[in-house]
Every structure is written in C-alpha cells, then in structure tokens.
Design a protein around this nucleic acid. Structure first.
Lengths: 248, 248
DNA sequence: AAGTGGTCTAGACCACGCG
DNA sequence: GCGTGGTCTAGACCACTTC
C-alpha cells in the first residue's frame, strides 16, 4: 500500500479533524479505493500525509474499527475488513419511525390511547415506582402501506412529557421527547418472541397463531432517572432487527 | 464533589494506566462511592490526583461513558448515571454457551449432525459462494436441566474449521473456532420471531404453535472473509435477548 | 470571568510480528 | 533490527455553561 488516495483536511472547518479524516477514510473504503483485506498505510504515514497528529489519526481509525470497517493487527498494520456493499445497521436509541424514514418509507401512526392511568404492576417495577401511582399511558399503532407493523405501548412517569394526540400523530415520539428535554441516553432492552393476545392480533390484523417480536425497553435520561418504559409488539413476518457486532 | 475516593495507579504494572483508572472508577461507582446523578471531579482534578495525564484519564472515562455509567455534559461536568444494581448485558460476539456459563448455569450440548453437504441456497448468498458448493454443516442442540433451549445450525466454508463430535460436545463452538484461527471479528445479525417447523418443534420439545426466536448471523474474520453462517432457534419462553444501548 | 469538557499537537517509549 | 500498532505525557486553544 503506497498511494494515499485522500485529500488534505481543512483545519479551519468547525468539523473536528478526526471526524474529517474518519469520513474521508470511510468514503475511500466504501468506494473500494482500499480493497478488502489489504493493509492501509501505517498510522505514521497517514498522519504525515494528511497533516494531522498521529493521535488524531488514531482517533479517526478508532471510529472505523468500531464500525467494523477496519481491524488493527499489532506489529502488522491496519486492515480493511468490510465488504463495501452492506451499509451496517447498528442498534440505536432512535425509534422505529426514524428507521423507516431513513429507508425512505413513510409510516403512518395512529394514537389509540393517551391518558393518565394507574401504573400497571409490570411497569412499576421497571420505572421504580409503586403500582397504581399515576402515570401517562400512550398506545399507538404504526402502519406502512395500510398494513400494521407495530403496536406501541409507552408509560411515562407524570411530568416527563406533555403532549397531544395531534402532535404524536405528526411526529415521532423520540422527537417529542427530545424537544421536551426528556432525551433518552441509556436504555436497557429485551427482545423476545411471543404470541399476540387476542386484542393485539386484531389490532395488528394477524392470526392469533402468528408470532410477534416483543421489544421491551426502559430508558433513562442523563441524570439516571427513568423516563419511560415501553413494550412494542412487531408483526414478526413484517419486521426483524438487524445489528452489527464488532469485537472489542 | 470534593473528595477523590480513589487510590493512585501503579505505573509499573503491565495493565495500561487508563484501564486501571477505568476499573477504579467503575468500582467506585458500583460501590456507591459516587451517588447516581452527582458530578464526579473535573477531568483536571481527577488527572492530577491520580497522577496521570488528562488524556489518559479521558480515555478511562470514555470507557465508562460507553458502558453507560457516566454521561458528559459540556461546560458542566461528568455525571454518574447508572444505578449500581444491574450489571449490564451488552450484545457480544460470544455464543450462548459463554452466556450461560457466565451466569453459573451448566449447559449440555449434543451434536446432531457434523458432515459435508452441498451449500443450501439460503446460506450460499450469505457466504458468498455458489449453492451446492461443499460446506461443513454442524447441527447442535443445547439444553439446560434436560430442557432444550436452542437448536443451532452452523455452516462453514470448507477449510475454515476442522473438528470432531467429541470436541464440539465438550467445548463451545466459539472456543474451537478461536483455537483454529477462525475468530470472528465482525458479524451481521438478524433477530426475528417465527413458528418452528414440525421437526424443530419436536427437537425442542415444544408445541408447533409455540414461537421461536430466530437469530441469523454471518461472521467475518479479521481479513473480511466470511467464516460462518448460522441460524439459531431459541425456545421463546425459555430465552430472550437483553442489551444495553447508549447514545453516541 | 471562571470552570468544564472537546480537540489537537509533538514527541516519547513500549510490545509485538516478521524477516 | 525494523516497522507496526499501543500507551502516555505536558501543554495548548477552543466552545460551552454558569454565575
């Protein structure tokens, strides 16, 4: 590996240097300017030719390693791993709405319920409050091309968010939460397979014998306070989760 | 936040300084020496009192941030997020065997098939070879307390690994792969819910109407070569996936 | 204005893989 | 022995938050 097919960085840009370098390298790899399996230039060489410090360059490479595009081998070099074809899906904290929009599919959301209720036993445990304490319950159904794909059930401690049926119909819940300062920073999540309840089967327009993917999630804000507990049921033959794992 | 309840680091230890600092901080947080929601000392202060450079300290904090224990707030400080109780499960590249052993449960693995076959259409696509090309097929069943929990189906390009029924009964597949230099570094993975085939239902000792969690995974080694394609069916009411997500 | 985290540098030493 | 990635330092400037 001799030629460095990369442009110099712009030191006056507000974009951090390591980010510029990371983008450049990522593009070069996805374009195939670095073939899969080959070694890229050494860190010293790349840092010199791009006009950045070695630490800054390493930080850029760190990002690509954690994206699974590069692998480091001590004493040997840094190797291109990924086939350029698949753009990886990584588990994220954004919701289903963002996932679909990103893929160019327009989802429709109906708000089925939005009301104050006594907290169900199962959620109270996750939210860290007593069963029966008042909470805000939101139930929605999301469809694509008039076909239901998910039934979403969110519970918020009172005062976490305040919204209307209209707003929740127009925007994603994630967006509303962010605007109201209830942005999730950490979440614990469980994925399971279940059979739908009779009611859920009807709402999802599936047979009661057709399984659903259950995603149960508890989200916390930056202060460690629990801000939401949700249970989402996805129609199994219309949705699945993809993720990319990388060894640390 | 004034007192720094942390011991100094050992500069002669082979363990990297940032790792020592990270462990110390993690322990302090899990012990409750830093309360949830409070700010820890500033980076300058901590670096000084521990006798390391600020960059090294930052690197330690980076690790805890990505574990979801700390959150940084620009201009404010670094805050403790996590409740000390739950030790987080993060999606990993290790297999089910390791998961169970880590939890102190002894799983039993039976090898149902280990033979060379023509590659099935569905796997050929993932492996990047032609359907019908010879591949190694491994089918196993894993049980806990005499109850089947998973049916595993792995396909390897010829020459990737070589093993025996005895070895695979004793060790985890992941371990065998690592020993033979076929360590997965990156994997793409899909989680879905399905109904079992009649044959699978029988092998798993469940009703045909009882759903399974299907985990389909394609693993690549450090050179970007595909080394394995697997489909694992988990009994849904005996297994689910947990993960912890953190905003980047 | 003061304090915080975010970025960046130049240089150093080490452990490892390979010839 | 040489080149690679892995770690570490001391010091600098910036953007942001808070008072």
């Amino acid at each position: 590996m001799t030629a460095a097919p990369l442009a110099a960085v712009d030191k006056n840009s507000p974009v951090p240097l390591y980010h510029q370098v990371e983008s450049q390298l990522e593009q070069a790899i996805r374009d195939g300017r670095y073939a899969t399996g080959t070694l890229i230039e050494s860190e010293f060489e790349l840092a010199r030719s791009l006009g950045v410090s070695r630490l800054t360059l390493r930080r850029a490479i760190d990002g690509l390693v954690s994206k699974g595009l590069l692998v480091r081998e001590r004493g040997v070099g840094t190797r291109v791993v990924s086939p350029k074809v698949t753009r990886s899906l990584v588990a994220r904290l954004t919701g289903l709405h963002e996932d679909l929009v990103r893929d160019g599919i327009a989802p429709v959301t109906e708000v089925l319920r939005l009301e104050e209720v006594g907290c169900p036993e199962a959620s109270a445990h996750h939210l860290g409050i007593e069963p029966g304490e008042p909470v805000l319950l939101l139930e929605r159904r999301r469809s694509v091309h008039d076909q239901p794909i998910a039934l979403m059930w969110n519970i918020f401690p009172l005062g976490t968010i305040e919204s209307t049926v209209e707003e929740l119909t127009a925007k994603s819940l994630y967006q509303v939460m962010r605007e109201q300062g209830a942005e999730p920073r950490v979440a614990n999540q469980t994925i399971a397979a279940e059979l739908p309840t009779a009611e859920d089967a009807e709402l999802l327009d599936i047979e009661p014998s057709s399984p659903v993917l259950m995603l149960e999630r508890t989200s916390f804000n930056g202060n460690g306070r629990c801000i939401e507990h949700s249970r989402t049921r996805y129609v199994a033959d219309r949705y699945s989760f993809e993720m990319r794992l990388v060894t640390s």
